[in-house]
């Protein structure tokens, strides 16, 4: 099992970021879109990437860092290849969403908000994904798995591991 954090090459990051910045014509106001795209590429926001964004958009690093830490979708910690989001909105909550989350936490041996050591999965809880009739819901990489039970957790996770 590969237990190390995904290795990043600074030169490669630079090229990648500059390509993204060019796509957004290096406009200051496109900061959030730029960060979104970077996160799509690396699953998180690597520090050298944020520093390159600051240089490329000619805005202070403090502002880039403020924005990157403000939004919940952005992660500054390396995340796994697959993102599991357990819905704990009201409907999913009363239908046992928390129990599903607990099961996933136990199966993967991580807490909500953490990443498995082999960087396969990251787990987080969200507060409603707009499909309450299908609750409890577990999203994996944006794919909806409705009417989840603790019995079904294993088979859903197996598809990705």
């Amino acid at each position: 099992m590969n237990t190390s954090e995904p290795k990043l090459d600074n030169e490669q990051i630079k090229t990648m970021i500059n390509a993204i910045l060019d796509k957004y014509r290096r406009e200051e106001g496109m900061l959030v879109s730029v960060l979104h795209e970077i996160q799509g590429e690396y699953h998180y926001l690597p520090r050298p990437a944020l520093e390159e964004v600051s240089r490329g958009l000619k805005i202070p690093l403090t502002r880039v860092y403020s924005v990157a830490t403000f939004f919940k979708v952005f992660s500054l910690k390396p995340r796994g290849r697959h993102l599991i989001q357990v819905c704990l909105g009201t409907a999913c909550h009363v239908r046992g969403g928390a129990r599903v989350r607990d099961t996933i936490e136990r199966d993967l041996a991580i807490k909500s908000g953490e990443t498995t050591p082999d960087f396969t999965f990251s787990l987080e809880s969200v507060n409603c994904v707009g499909a309450c009739a299908l609750g409890p819901i577990v999203l994996v990489d944006g794919q909806y798995n409705g009417q989840m039970t603790i019995e079904k957790v294993d088979s859903v996770l197996k598809k990705y591991a």
């Binding site: 520090r47 690093l61 502002r63 880039v64 860092y65 403020s66 830490t69």
Partner: peptide, 18 residues
């Protein structure tokens, strides 16, 4: 521009980048 407010809600803090 050496410091700014970072994070959100109860985690809000005054800090330097990273």
């Amino acid at each position: 521009s050496a410091i700014s407010l970072v994070n959100r809600g109860v985690d809000r803090q005054m800090a330097t980048p990273f």
